[in-house]
Design a protein around this nucleic acid. Sequence first.
DNA 1: GAGGAAATTCCGCTATACGGAACAAATATG
DNA 2: CATATTTGTTCCGTATAGCGGAATTTCCTC
Lengths: 266, 266
Amino acid sequence: MSKTKSNPQTLSSVRNALRILKSFSTFEPTKRVSELAESLGLAKSTVSRLLATLASEGFVIKDEKTKAYKLGLSVLTLGGIVTNNFEIHKEAVPVLNKLVNDTGETAHLAILDGNDTIYIHKEECNHPVRILTHLGRRNPAYCTSSGKVLLAFSDRETVEQVIENGLVKHMPNTITDPDELRKELKKIREQGYAISTEELTEGTRSVAAPIRDYTGKVVCAVTVVGPIQRMHDHKIQEIAKKVVRAAEDASERLGYDKRYFRQLGK
Amino acid sequence: MSKTKSNPQTLSSVRNALRILKSFSTFEPTKRVSELAESLGLAKSTVSRLLATLASEGFVIKDEKTKAYKLGLSVLTLGGIVTNNFEIHKEAVPVLNKLVNDTGETAHLAILDGNDTIYIHKEECNHPVRILTHLGRRNPAYCTSSGKVLLAFSDRETVEQVIENGLVKHMPNTITDPDELRKELKKIREQGYAISTEELTEGTRSVAAPIRDYTGKVVCAVTVVGPIQRMHDHKIQEIAKKVVRAAEDASERLGYDKRYFRQLGK
DNA sequence: GAGGAAATTCCGCTATACGGAACAAATATG
DNA sequence: CATATTTGTTCCGTATAGCGGAATTTCCTC
C-alpha cells in the first residue's frame, strides 16, 4: 500500500480521501468515480465510499444528474480561515489594492512552500483580459517572479533543494541551467525585484518584490501579473518601481525599518 | 458510533478526519490533540494519528515547538479552486470592486447553503476600522442582510425550513418571530433590498441586494457591511441604491434582461 | 532535578474498510 | 427501439487497518 512513502502512523483511508480532494484542480474541477479509481489505483467501490463520506461533510458536492463530483463549500470555509491567519494579510491588503489601481494589473501576495510559491492573496484588476490564477495557486518557484524573489532572499539550502528537484523547461524562456539560476538570483538580490517573462506560462509577464518583517526577514512577495502586451519593455521599469514601492510600504507596516538595516550594511 | 447520523456507507476514520478540519475556526485557529480528543469523543491516540495523516498531506501544519496544529496550505489551494468554479465570480468581481470604491465599505458575494449564507467572495475596503469577516464565512440566513435577501427570493419551503430550524436571538434586534420574519421577507421582495442592523453582530450594519441570472432566478446576493457609525440612517438609503445598482449590473452581465422580465409582470 | 501534563508509540483485539462480484442505472450503439 | 456497454452503487466475506488503553517519551513547570 506504500505508493509514495506511507509514514508508519498514517491512516490509508484518510490519506486516500485527502488524495481525492487534492486531485481536483482549476483545469479539472469535476471528477468521476472510475476516473479517480483509475488514477489513484483503488477499487471503484472504495472511491465511491470515500466520496460519499466527503460529500456527507460538505467537502465535495455530487451532481446527482451527471454523478460528477466537485469540491464543496466546506473547503471554501476552511480556505478563508487559513487566509485570515496570515498576519501579513491585514497589513498588505490595502497596499495591494493601491498597487492594482496604480498598475491596472492583478496583484498577488505569495509565500514559499517547499519548492513552490503559493498565492496567499489575490487582488484582481478590471481589465477584461485577465490571467487565470487563483488563491492558493501553486507554481514552481524557479520560473515565476515571486518564486525567484523569495528564493533570492532565502538560504542557500533552499535554492539548492529547488535545483536538485529539477529545473523543468516549461517554456523557451525557462531557466534550466543551475548556474544561470544562481546568477539570476544574485541579480535579483542586487536590483531588489524580479521579472519573469514567459518562463512558465505563455503570454504572461510578472514582476515581484520582497516584503520584510520587523526582523528584516523576507516573509512574502508582492507580484503583479499581466499579459506581455500590457507589460511592455518600456513600461516594465515603471511597473517594477511601483511593485518595489508597494513591497516597501507593506514592509514598513510590518515594522521593518529600512534605515536601520541600511545602517547595518545589509 | 453514530453521533449525528452515520450514513451506512461512510467511513468513520475519514469522517473523523474531516470533523477535525471543520473544528478549526477564525476564533480558534489552532487546536491540540487532547482538546480535539475531548470535543470529538475520541481517544488521544486516534486523534494524534488522524492529525499526522492530515499533516502528511498538508491539510494541517504542526508547530513542532508548541505541538499545536493549524490549517495547512492544501486547504487554501482547494478553496481557491472552489472560488474559481463559480461563474458568477468572473462577472461580479469588477462590479464589486466598483461598489467598494463607491461606498468605501467592504463588499461580499453570498450564496445560500442550507440555512446559512456563505460568502463566496470578499472585496475589502481601505478603512482602518474593519469588520472581521472572511471568505467562506458561514452565517445564519435569517439575521444577515444577504441571507434575508436570498430567503426573500427563494421558495416557501426553504424559508419554512429555516424557521423550523429555530430563530435564535443573537442580539436584541434579531428577528425571532416567524411571522415577523415572513413580513420582513415580503418587504424585502417589494423594495428590492435588505438591511440588517445589529441582528447578528454588535456594531455592524449591512445592506444586500439580489443578483439574477439569465433565467431571472436569484443566484447570489451582493452585500456591503460596515460599522453602524459609518452606515448612518441618513446615508443608508444612498448606500442601498448603490448596492441595488451593483446587483443589477452584475445581473445584466449574467444575461438577465430586466425589461423582459418586467414585461412578464414578475 | 523532580513532578506532572501532554503527545506519541506500542500492542492486541475487533470492527472496519477493502476488493471483487453482483446489481442497477444510465448512456451509447446498431 | 432493443441491445450492448459503460459507470456507479450495494452486498459480502475476509484480512487488516484502525481503534482504545497502557506504556513511553517529551516537554513544561515549579
